[in-house]
Design a protein around this nucleic acid. Structure first.
Lengths: 146, 146
DNA sequence: GGACAATAAATTTTATACAATTTAATCAAT
DNA sequence: ATTGATTAAATTGTATAAAATTTATTGTCC
């Protein structure tokens, strides 16, 4: 591919990812609105539903987000009554996030989201599975290098 | 896959895309910093280098961004001397974006970016090409449905 | 040609992202 | 035990995103 071709917007892998990521987020929006959640709040809860009682640091490692993003987001979820934020008594530097009863219960209401997401589209589950594997493989190669 | 598995963060295609998109943006950051550009500013210029003299509406259709995002971004690029913003005389509702001499010249400096991006990683060009095709296919299926 | 719908940008508001700095707590080494 | 380095969150500042509203202009229909 020559320089001309290499610089076309439609030939950028980055743009494909960037645009597709936002399009998928748009698919989520109406489903998550029923739960009163944004997309970032949703993946934060997905992580907490898997493992509760984690520090901001641990949560950030899973979501690839830092405290600059997480602090206001967790404060918001706290104000919604879905979780609590408290310093770790054994090391006051750590802030421990815990789901409330209400936060745990929201999991049931959210459980239909993954299956509903691609309803009405021609996207096959097998395609999603294969694509996810490839994306994760790409990401690990990027992370190995940096 | 059962409900338990379906809700794991690592099984979400959305999260793979979302995280990978941000990781690729991080690869760009040092390269684009040399040009004084952010990632969104860069893809906006990629589009303008392909086709100049476009309205905000047209640009937004290509980048999948609306005026709420583009207006401040274009004002910033204008203040950097890379483009001009002027109302279309034949239809004052349209604002026409035009690259300046400086904006056109930046293309030369940016031409090495696509090749340098995955330098130092184990990512093969063939892998990128195949993956981009699949992502674009997924996106068109999503867009057909909505 | 005047009322009204439609269109395009801009603006407002809320919520991310992330680099850089600050603050507070803990660890390390003497 | 005190100084200095390290660590974890929070804060600050800049730049996106996107829904909703506003403003200005143009098209439409009678």
């Amino acid at each position: 591919m020559n320089s001309e071709e290499l610089m076309k917007l439609d030939n950028q892998l980055c743009f494909a990812f960037y645009a597709c990521s936002r399009e998928i987020t748009k698919l989520y929006r109406p489903l998550l609105a029923e739960l009163g959640l944004t997309y970032t709040q949703y993946i934060t809860l997905l992580s907490l539903w898997e493992q509760d009682n984690v520090s901001v640091k641990e949560l950030g490692a899973k979501l690839l987000l830092d405290s600059g993003t997480l602090t206001p987001l967790l404060k918001k979820l706290e104000s919604m009554g879905l979780l609590t934020r408290a310093r770790d008594k054994s090391d006051e530097r750590h802030l421990v996030v815990r789901l409330t009863e209400q936060g745990q219960q929201l999991r049931e209401k959210a459980s239909c989201v993954p299956l509903r997401l691609f309803e009405g589209t021609a996207v096959e589950p097998e395609e999603l599975f294969a694509l996810r594997k490839q994306v994760q493989s790409l990401m690990s190669k990027i992370n190995e290098a940096t």
